[in-house]
Simulated assay, not measured.
Amino acid sequence: MVTSRDVARAAGVSQSTVSYVMSGRRSISEETRRRVLAAIEELTYQPNAGARALASQRTQVIGLVVRFRPGADTTGLLPFIETIAGCARAEDHDVLLVTADEGSEGLTRLAGRALCDAIVMMDIEAADPRIPVAAALRVPVILIGVPDDNAGLHCVDVDFAAAGRLAVGEAAAAGHERIVVIGHAPDVVTRGINFVHRFEEGAAEAARSHGVALEMVSPVEPNRAGAEAAVAEALHRGGPRTGLVVPNSPAVQPVLQALLDRRLVPGRDVTLVGLCTDAVAEASTPAVTNVSLEPRDVSRRAMQILFRLLDRAAEPPAELVELIPPRLTRRETTLPAP
């Protein structure tokens, strides 16, 4: 097994110089740095993670806490997880994915056993009981989501209020005087996931601004039966010229199919605006006008902040809450403006 001593001998430097080049903790001449890196590449040296952790008091691991629940839209989480993992690897860190619903005990285990240098938390509830515990940990914690009380923790999320305004504004611009929001899944509503009320407040604000009626059908199971029942209720209330907004991403395709089953073509007979990723919107038939969830932008910004918090020499961002602006893309399911 190749050791740092072998690298030092090949580069003609001391073992401590090899350590300084790898950690970046001391200024090393460019010529010496090149020799050390060349020796590392030639010998295919991989530093022992345990030894490096002892020396630096860092694990080079980021803990990612995601609660997978029955019926959850796990495919919607993949862009977040992929981006977080990619950003971590770019900073020479690995990701420890914690999926068990352990609540506060899971956070304490991660930090108490020194398993990671920092923690990313997702699936944030409005009144999340984990937040006070997370705020008291000795490692940096960042939230993807915004609780009612962030307890001084940094948060990054989509601006869901702006998303609500964009979606309702698009339906109103298509000439609809009545707009129905086909709401979130029962589990999301019951647990008070933070983005639900923010989206609804933005939608209500836009309805008032445009002078249109806004109604809710909620909660809605994101399956064919749930979508059929929701569409039936929405059309019963307002007729076929009702504009539909679907912030429940897994329900977008079932709602689209429920309309087509009734011989109502979105973009010709009714407007449908979904809150979903561009990939979901583009894969639908017809392609759905959508407000994007921007998962990669949210994750990328969260990781930028997290590594600033890990850098003892860097100033943390002054703002504790950063909201990523959503983006509306008009596709085939919006009626032409009158």
Rank of each mutant, 00 (worst) to 15 (best):
A283K: 02
P338W: 03
Y20P: 00
D157R: 00
R327A: 15
A230Q: 13
V217E: 13
L64M: 09
R138V: 12
S29P: 00
V146E: 11
E322T: 03
R138D: 15
R26K: 15
D92I: 08
Q253T: 10
P70R: 06
L323P: 01
E102Q: 14
R327I: 14
R237E: 11
A39P: 01
P254S: 12
R268D: 14
A136Y: 03
A318Y: 00
S14I: 08
D278Y: 03
A313E: 10
P317Q: 10
N48G: 04
R113D: 10
V61K: 09
D123I: 04
R262M: 10
A229C: 12
R109P: 01
L97K: 08
F80R: 01
V98S: 11
Q257E: 15
I131Y: 09
M216T: 02
V98E: 11
T271E: 15
E332C: 11
E125A: 15
A72G: 04
D261F: 08
S23M: 06
I305H: 00
F68D: 06
E233W: 07
H154F: 03
E42W: 00
A287D: 05
A118T: 01
A90R: 09
T75R: 13
A203F: 05
E170Q: 14
H210P: 00
V212D: 09
A279S: 12
L37P: 03
I28S: 08
R178V: 11
G192N: 07
